[in-house]
Design a protein around this nucleic acid. Structure first.
Length: 861
RNA sequence: GCGAGUGUGGCGGAAUCGGUAGACGCAGCGGAUUCAAAAUCCGCCGCCCGCAAGGGCUUGGGGGUUCAAGUCCCCCCACUCGCACCA
């Protein structure tokens, strides 16, 4: 018989149960089970060396879901791994001379120990690290399959170059014109790069968002915007008049993209981007044009630059023929607001119905021809001066389309363009193909060989995997793999001649785009089996930060489709349910010198704060996301040492709903700790072990039994709906109800024991160690990890009577106690007899009495 | 600029269907226990007036619908996030 220790001692309890769970193989997932499956996954961490509070929150949320579903009888897969390629490892190599692989492996073992200390219910047999050939070899094969299918290709293109990281970035990794990690302004470079054809799936990725009904709307919207489908038309404008030879040699037309072909009759100019081939051709013979192009090139793409930039243009002197109006010639400008990257790099301007075009037309005295008439306007005096009209209306000044609405006008315009051979309907996307080449060492080698005579040659199956060389020099500038003396030199698999390996490695988002599949079948020689993928996928609940809304989450959706179409699996969506957790925030502090201070350096001084050792006053700043740079961080290890993992977990779940930002406070942690100590004391009551009587159904004991059933019912619903803060409140409420039963009759003891046992079972997924300990002390031999979730007895959830508010003219004046489902006349009589109503009526007859059963009574006078 | 979200006591937050606003916790206040403190236990706790009984006000602001509005509709304000010369 295990007896309870005098005092709650988290470190002893937690180590004990972590060992027991491991020895009992409690959390090993079964690929051949009759139970329904449930796959819960938290976004795997980069092994930076230490976990932070964001990890603690993320994994606490996941562990709650995993333990809850397991108790409900699901075959739960809850794995953990390491997103182990990436730049910090190379930086460590440069700064400290340690090999990236060694550094990464050491970090992994340190972090694994920290995670173990949190008591997380992972199936560690499925652990993976993406930097091992055992993992990355599979993506080399995937890549070659993608190539065969035309989903991976190489092209020369302008790319985003991060001058600090010395590598290319994907469009998704450029934020406000700067590198997402380095923060350095990106440069544009023309390079030969590998791309994955995500645009092939643009429509599918967009349309399928609708089916992701367990994703936050916010993320779905962000993906929609990122894909950015816009429907419109391509329109060809033939160059007219005298065309200089230089230009006619290049082209004899300009093709534009528009979403408003219905406004074609309102066109007054055509403009091309500064890096459009036509602009470059014009600049060959014109110093003024060359100067203008240089000016445009100088203008950054940053937010600030864009906002302050004036609409500027350069009149090329060229004209184009309007495709539908015979005698209409339009001037051709080079304009700084036209982007080569979007559409065709050229537009037609309809100033009346586009604000940008209007600003431009006003600056260069171009015509403004309104062609859409708002419903309540008069064609005679409708004028556009400095605000363009973009709303709905009837077309006018538009020849055969007059009188049509905008939508019909678009269709008519496309039909007319197609008939005239001057254009066609066209859908464009903001989404670009995913550039995956990175000029880094610590990534997965791209399995390609460059041969002067055979071209691009895939590394043959037998030669896979292409492993990274161990001996590597980070001192020289540039790509370390290129600098390696021998690694890149190979003979061509086709002709046997001298050839050279591809020296770029994959973007590390490649690894995270399929790791959830590897977890399903972590030792399979082909990466994973169709059967395992079919059984476990999709992930039922995915949990992580919202910062991956368009990176990882979009790439993974693409990968599922690409793997489906290359024969790896069936299905298309990786994550059926997504929960994006809020950030962990903390107050910031600055010393007299303006430098940031750690919370550990500071202590309370009445309403303000002071330095712990000198007592000097400290400035308390905003509550912000915990970050090393602001020093407002709290080390999870210190918290776990001081309070225990259960306390840290409980606090993470209390108070704030999981999707919202939360503030980490000492007082909050103390509160969680106090609650666990209180539960421990409740359970330490020796009389509980003697409770063997029948459960009472009346009196204080009966109330407690009903309260326990209500707690089960509410808690189950709250966990299923991710209302974890409310779930914690249910625990407090039940604990309070237990405290109400103070008698020592056999029935009281029985009720108390039932209350405590229920409380412990409900507490288990949140604070599992203390729950297991108390469960054992109460005499149970089967661990809670192997115990079913409690079920509420529906009969115990109903009450006999209900307190109902009584209003007079909508204002609460009294309450009455009524039997549940009381008849209307009974309720009415009770309300009219209540003191508050009598006082208010002062003898008057009520006009009307509204009775809403079991809810409210409103007396209207 | 466009899109989305948020706004409730001193604080974090409840209120799931239009039906007793403020569950639960934190902080605070009072008491018990203690030589004392910590811890613990009991009680109070939206704001204003009042000894009390009771009354008035209150969910960012203003209007509206309704017997009844934190919740629905219209207008406005503030903050947060995402996108952005996107044709």
């Amino acid at each position: 018989m295990v007896t309870i220790m005098d005092q709650y001692n988290p470190s002893a309890i937690e180590a004990k149960w972590q060992d027991r769970w491991e020895a009992g193989e409690c959390f090993v997932a079964d690929n051949n089970s009759d139970k329904p499956k449930y796959y819960v996954l938290e976004m795997f961490p980069y092994p930076s060396g230490r976990i932070h509070m964001g990890h603690v929150r993320n994994y606490t949320l996941g562990d709650l879901v995993a333990r809850f579903r397991r108790a409900q009888g699901f075959n739960v897969l809850h794995p953990m791994g390491w997103d182990a390629f990436g730049l910090p490892a190379e930086n460590a190599a440069m700064e400290r001379g340690v090999h990236p692989g060694k550094w990464t492996i050491e970090n992994i073992s340190a972090m694994r120990a920290q995670l173990r200390g949190m008591g997380l219910s992972y199936d560690w047999d499925r652990e993976l690290a993406t930097c091992t050939p055992d993992y990355y070899q599979h993506e080399q094969r995937m890549f070659l399959k993608f190539m065969e299918k035309g989903l991976a290709y190489r092209k020369e293109s302008w790319v985003n170059w991060d001058p600090v990281e010395n590598t290319v970035l994907a469009n998704e990794q450029v934020v406000d014109g700067c590198g997402w990690r380095s923060g350095a302004p990106v440069e544009r470079r023309l390079l030969s790069q590998w791309f994955l054809k995500i645009t092939e799936y643009a429509d599918d990725l967009l349309d399928a968002i609708e089916g992701l009904d367990r994703w936050p709307d916010r993320v779905r919207l962000m993906q929609q915007n990122w894909i950015g489908r816009s429907e419109g038309a391509r329109v060809r404008f033939a160059l007219s008049g005298e065309i200089p030879k230089d230009i006619s040699a290049e082209t004899d037309y300009i093709e534009v993209f528009t979403t408003r072909p219905d406004t074609l009759y309102g066109a007054s100019f055509v403009a091309v981007a500064a890096n459009h081939p036509l602009a470059i051709a014009v600049a060959r013979d014109s110093d003024d044009a060359t100067d203008f192009l240089a000016e445009c090139a100088k203008l950054g793409t940053s937010e600030a630059a864009v906002e302050t930039a004036e609409k500027k243009g350069f009149d090329t002197g060229l004209t184009v023929q309007h495709p539908l109006v015979a005698d209409c010639q339009l001037p051709v400008y080079i304009a700084n607001f036209v982007l080569m990257e979007y559409g065709t790099g050229a537009i037609f301007g309809c100033p009346a119905h586009d604000q940008r075009d209007l600003d431009f037309a006003n600056a260069y005295n171009l015509g403004v021809i309104p062609v859409v008439l708002p419903e309540d306007a008069d064609a005679g005096d409708f004028k556009i001066t400095d605000t363009a009209y973009t709303g709905p209306g009837k077309l006018f000044n538009s020849g055969p389309w007059d009188g049509m609405n905008v939508e019909d006008g678009k269709r008519a315009a496309i039909a007319a363009l197609e008939a005239a051979g001057a254009g066609n309907g066209q859908t464009t996307y903001r989404l670009r193909d995913w550039g995956v080449s990175r000029q880094r060492y610590w990534g997965c080698p791209i399995p390609i060989i460059h041969c002067d005579s055979c071209g691009l040659v895939p590394v043959p199956e037998a030669d896979l995997p292409v492993e990274l060389p161990e001996d590597i020099d980070f001192e020289a500038p540039g790509n370390p793999l290129s600098n390696h003396p021998t690694w890149k030199h190979v003979s061509c698999p086709d002709c046997g001649g001298e050839a050279i390996r591809e020296q770029d490695t994959f973007d590390t988002f490649f690894e995270s785009s399929w790791y959830f599949l590897r977890f399903a079948d972590p030792h399979h020689p082909q990466g994973f089996s169709r059967e395992a993928a079919a059984y476990w996928m999709p992930v039922d609940q995915y949990i992580g930060g919202v910062e991956h809304a368009v990176l990882h989450l979009l790439y993974s959706r693409f990968f599922m489709r690409a793997l489906r179409d290359t024969g790896y699996l069936e299905g298309d969506e990786p994550f059926a349910g997504l929960m994006t957790q809020g950030m962990v925030c903390h107050q910031t502090f600055r010393g007299a010198d303006g430098k940031w201070l750690f919370p550990t350096e500071v202590e309370r001084d009445g309403d303000s704060w002071k330095l712990r050792d000198t007592g000097t006053a400290v400035t308390a700043g905003r509550i912000e996301k915990m970050s090393k740079s602001k020093r407002n961080v709290v080390d999870p290890d210190v918290i776990i040492e001081t309070y225990g993992a259960d306390t840290a977990r409980l606090f993470m779940l209390s108070d704030s709903p999981p999707e919202r930002d939360m503030e980490w406070t000492e007082a909050g942690v103390e509160g969680a700790s106090r609650f666990l100590k209180r539960i421990y004391r409740l359970a330490a009551d020796p009389s509980l072990s003697k409770a063997e009587a029948q459960l009472p159904d009346s009196g204080a004991g009966g109330d407690l039994v009903r309260a326990a059933h209500r707690a089960i019912d509410a808690m189950t619903a709250d966990i299923e709906a991710f209302r974890f803060n409310k779930a914690v409140a249910q625990l407090y409420t039940l604990a309070n109800a237990i405290g109400e039963v103070r008698g020592n009759e056999a029935s009281d003891l029985a009720a108390r024991r039932f209350g405590v046992e229920t409380l412990i079972r409900l507490l288990y997924p949140l604070a599992p160690h203390i729950a297991e300990e108390i469960w054992e002390v109460l005499g149970h031999e089967v661990m809670l990890a192997d115990t079913d979730w409690p079920k509420a007895d529906p009969d115990m959830l109903t009450e006999d009577s209900v307190e109902i508010g009584v209003q007079v003219n909508g204002k609460l004046r009294d309450t009455v106690s009524l039997p549940v489902d009381a008849e209307e006349d009974v309720a009415r009589a009770a309300a009219l007899a209540s003191a508050g109503v009598i006082r208010y009526l002062e003898g008057r007859e009520p006009k009307k009495v509204i009775v809403v059963r079991n809810r409210i009574i409103n007396v209207v006078v």
